[in-house]
Design a protein around this nucleic acid. Structure first.
Lengths: 132, 132
DNA sequence: ATGGCTATTTATAACTC
DNA sequence: TGAGTTATAAATAGCCA
């Protein structure tokens, strides 16, 4: 069935798009795992032939691009939250995030589940290391 | 020999670095193949813990970054999510929610910790009850 | 297009030197 | 450390519903 293929441009348009989609999904999954497992700053951005943009970044796209482009904002501290940070912070404080979670699909929930276990562990560790 | 592993931060530093190197190589190989086979504009950039930068781009890094930075509003997902889904989905994908969490006080963290255990349990239960 | 389904290929975790 | 080895897990090319 499956055969080894040569890595060169696929000429057939529909086959190329199918492969683009399948491989992009695999690549982004691997990139996410890579970030979670090694805590590396990383970014992946891809444009389809139709011009659609697919991207992911850890801790986020802009932070990694800042590092790459030489920006000084590479070291994020607790000062000056971005719009996104403020938004999430508000959501956490108000409890509205619970509403949002209800709307997520299974794949997003899986992803969130994994992240939650990570952050739960991290929060526990951080809490233990604090004098109180 | 090889066993299935859970995707979470590897705590052991040397093991983490080994995995970082191996997975980064695999990822970059796949990214190159992806670009060659589908002629997608794509870029991958990663920073090691030591700050070393590894990157690749097709047709080249700067071209893709120009598309991303100057380009139109990026469609991160192909579906049409609700505002809530988009907000949380974006936060999960980018990892920015982790930044927001860092700004919370101890009492808020305690509260969040409890909520996380709840939602984690709920997600597990929901996942188990779904046919897949 | 979209989403499975294998038969294979490919990536890689654990191990060794 | 870094560079192989190998047994296993994961990705995916070609099909088809």
């Amino acid at each position: 069935m499956r055969r080894k293929i040569e890595i060169k441009l696929i000429n057939d348009k529909s086959k190329r798009y199918t492969t683009f989609t399948k491989r992009r999904k695999g690549l982004m999954k691997k990139a996410e795992e890579f970030c979670q497992i090694s805590d590396s700053k990383a970014v992946f951005i891809s444009f389809s032939g139709a011009g659609n943009c697919y991207c992911l970044g850890h801790p986020d796209v802009d932070t990694v691009l800042d590092c790459y482009l030489g920006g000084s904002s590479s070291t994020k501290e607790e000062e000056a939250p971005t719009e996104a940070e403020r938004r999430i912070g508000d959501a956490v404080e108000s409890g509205r995030w619970k509403e949002a979670v209800r709307g997520l699909g299974l794949d997003k929930l899986d992803q969130l589940h994994a992240e939650l276990e990570n952050i739960t562990r991290r929060v526990s560790l951080a809490a233990e290391s604090v004098n109180r």
